[in-house]
Computed example of a mutant assay.
Amino acid sequence: MIPGTRRVLIASDTYPPDVNGAGYFTHRLAAGLAARGNEVHVVCPSPDGPAGRETRDGVTVHRLRSHPLLLHPTMRFVVPAAVNRAIREVVTAVAPDVVHVQGHFPVGRATLKHAARVGIPTIATNHFMPDNLLHHVKVPTRLRKWVASRAWRDAAAVFARADHVTTPTRLAAEVFRDNGFTGHIEPVSCGIDLSRFHPRSTSATAARARLDLPDRKTILFVGRLDEEKRVHELIRALPSLRRRVDAQLVIAGTGPQGPALTRLAADLGISAYVRFLGFVPDADLPGVYRAADLFAIAGVAELQSIVTLEAMASGLPVVAADAVALPHLVRNGHNGFLFTPGDIDGISTRLEVILESADEIAAMGAASRAMAAEHDHARSLARFEEIYTHLAAPARSRI
């Protein structure tokens, strides 16, 4: 390590090629810190089973032997009986100045526990919402509230071991406190790279042509096609909207709900106006946002929603569910509108108000971009570095 640099170990139970918000955030955090001169290590499950080590984007990634997670179609896990030894070996080899844990599942839990045992300062960031996992578990509806409560209690107990706790938004912090966490929580935005995501400089027509999309008013959703994303509500809102506006819905993402959503569009007779792009590589996402006129999201388990921030940075108005942290990003009548989850007519009406006016699209899009600037990725990285420095100083003074 170069004298004067900071050595950070980030522990996460999900990391690319996993496709989810926590995994993407962890990668952006690690690569961003490395680009700022830190020595960064990540410990996470292997994407295909065998353990290994690789260096990518300036980050050393320590992959732990993993197994398929039967409750989730794409994620993998490290056996609890083996994770403690593996983490001990990684922490000993890396000897970090600070450990940053991204959750309370096996890898994060074991890393937090071992770091505290050997006196390494710790920070933990919560991305967890029970709704993101419960739909994969065959739990009777009448028991879901009880299971969610137990899950929150477990997360709170694990995070109580950390020296500093963050979560992406103020509203997300309130949710965690309301569900049992009694310590201090600092909101630190996941951040957005404003140099990558910005308003289009060419026409929407040209951007749509590059994606082989018809040239009509375009509503965009980006994300996993999982139950809690409630993409079916956006599809159901389209027939009513189309009676007044020549609009299409473009969906970028994959997931277990994909086949059902395709069938729903067919059953409603709107298959020609619902386009499924499938998985879009991160490098290509800016071009997808630039093909849209408006971003819509109906999810009810968003602690921040990186895709909404990306859409805002791209200069798009937003129509979003009035749930969890989305109201933190959408101000009614300013950069878009909120709707009550499940209110299909409400979605349609709000989409229409924006799409029927080019001036409304432009004004709300500009407001979105200005709001997104408050979440500049560089600002978030700088704050995390400040936290690391503050935590590591007492540890260094004991050496």
Score class of each variant (00 low, 15 high):
D215P: 06
S203I: 04
R196Y: 00
L225E: 05
K229W: 03
L194T: 04
A207I: 09
G191H: 07
D178C: 10
S189L: 12
T218F: 09
E227I: 06
L220V: 04
V175F: 05
F181Q: 04
L220C: 08
D193G: 02
D226L: 09
V165S: 09
D226G: 15
R196S: 11
F181S: 00
R200Q: 06
L225K: 04
F176M: 15
D226S: 15
F176R: 01
F197W: 06
T167K: 10
A206S: 03
R170I: 13
R224S: 13
T167F: 07
P214I: 01
K217E: 07
R216P: 06
F197N: 08
A173S: 13
P187D: 14
P187S: 14
S195Q: 11
G191Q: 04
E174D: 14
H164Q: 10
E227L: 14
E227Y: 11
L171H: 10
V165K: 05
G180W: 06
K229P: 07
V222W: 01
S203E: 05
A204D: 00
C190P: 00
L220Y: 09
N179H: 15
D178I: 02
D212T: 00
V188R: 04
K229V: 12
H184E: 15
R210F: 00
S203T: 15
T166D: 07
P187K: 13
T169D: 10
T205C: 00
L194R: 00
F176T: 05
A204Y: 00
V188N: 11
E228T: 02
D193M: 02
L211N: 03
H198S: 11
D226Y: 12
L171G: 10
A207Y: 05
R170V: 15
D226A: 15
T166I: 14
P168Q: 11
T218I: 07
H198M: 02
G223A: 03
E227M: 11
T202L: 05
K217Q: 12
R196D: 04
R170S: 14
A172H: 06
D178F: 08
C190N: 15
E186L: 10
G191C: 07
